[in-house]
Design a protein around this nucleic acid. Structure first.
Lengths: 216, 216
DNA sequence: GTCTATATAGGGATAGAC
DNA sequence: GTCTATCCCTATATAGAC
């Protein structure tokens, strides 16, 4: 039986759900399924999801286009599989906190964890940033995983009217600072080691938020 | 003679180059060309450029698909016209400063002006944010207007190795903070008046960057 | 698991009438 | 300036052989 059909919950053919090597790529799982995901991740990110054809993915694989359909039910299914991993590391960062009533302290803690997760899974983050439209539509169609997307989490938390406007803006600033700088990793900040960047970013978040957290 | 062909420099059929009402829309120019741009701006932003078909634009127009080709040489040409307006307000904000050797003071000043411009032309900004992939490719193909895109300007300025790494990261943070919060206008911050938001953002940038600008 | 061949739909774009 | 009709291409997806 072909493994086709809509399988979000990673099939985990042997042993991949340990949050570690899930990203695979050169050095990870070499199953064809994994290779497809790796190639798609690259092309979707550099060209955009819509502009990437299955033909092109097949070309890099060395296989024919039809072969892909043995592993995935549709092109969208490939994007969903990648989106799922995005959710996975998002959940890791945000854990248990309910966004609707997250305090500013919780916001900062989540942001800290998010920095680490994104630095670890930067390729997936880049996919997220470059395909916001496609991913948004995906979430609209299949709202199984509702607030699994970390961006959604932060947006909901930011809507909390119980927090003063001034503070909400500062929270938004801290979030944007992190996203934007991490987006530049690999380009303008390609020379900066991850650890250094993480420290600098945490400091920045602090400076944006600190006056709020400890009202001198 | 059809007005077709690649015309970046807005044809300005009567009197539109005053930076004011260029955005048109409900209340602006009612020429068909203007209506097309307005509809495209909406659809490109909500669905993405690639996912929007000329058929769909024509449907909203009430015209047939072919009619569009009298006004624009291609679908890409529509995007270029919108991109041109984006450049217009970008130039307004960045003016004369050479990004390659912009000081931190210049950076902050540019950021201030950018806040105002984006608040004035928020629909165009949203287009920019939701179609980064498509616009990037456009700029790759037709590098007539090189650093006209404001994002490019800030990226180049950020690459300036003459500035200490720590400070470059701070600059990136300030930029990201502004972008991200302005992206939420109309959603999470829909209740906030523009003027209020502008003040809060300038304050945030100021508080964040001030220690750099005035080394106590 | 991968192939070739094909079905089917929709996209952008053009021709020429009005 | 807008229409209808059509062309051509590429896309996703399927059928069935190997």
């Amino acid at each position: 039986m072909p493994r086709t059909g809509t399988n979000h919950a990673e099939p985990a053919p042997a042993a991949e759900k340990a949050s570690a090597g899930a990203e695979a790529g050169p050095g990870g799982q070499d199953s064809t399924r994994e290779r497809i995901l790796w190639i798609a991740l690259d092309l979707f990110t550099t060209q955009g999801y819509e502009k990437t054809s299955l033909r092109q993915i097949a070309g890099r694989l060395g296989f024919s286009k039809a072969a892909i359909y043995y592993h995935f039910a549709s092109k969208e299914d490939i994007l969903m599989a990648l989106d799922f991993r995005l959710h996975e590391f998002g959940r890791d960062a945000l854990s248990t906190v309910d966004p609707a009533e997250a305090s500013q302290e919780a916001w900062v803690r989540s942001l800290y964890r998010l920095i680490d997760q994104i630095l670890k899974h930067h390729a997936l983050f880049a996919l997220h940033e470059r395909n916001r439209a496609a991913l948004a539509q995906l979430h609209r169609e299949r709202h199984d995983f509702e607030y699994d997307d970390f961006e959604e989490w932060f947006r909901v938390a930011l809507s909390n009217r119980a927090i003063a406007l001034h503070d909400r803006v500062r929270m938004g600033c801290a979030f944007g600072a992190v996203m934007s700088v991490l987006d530049l990793v690999g380009d303008e900040f390609s020379d900066v080691p991850s650890a250094t960047l993480a420290v600098l970013l945490r400091d920045a978040v602090n400076d944006f938020m600190a006056p709020n957290l400890a009202p001198a």
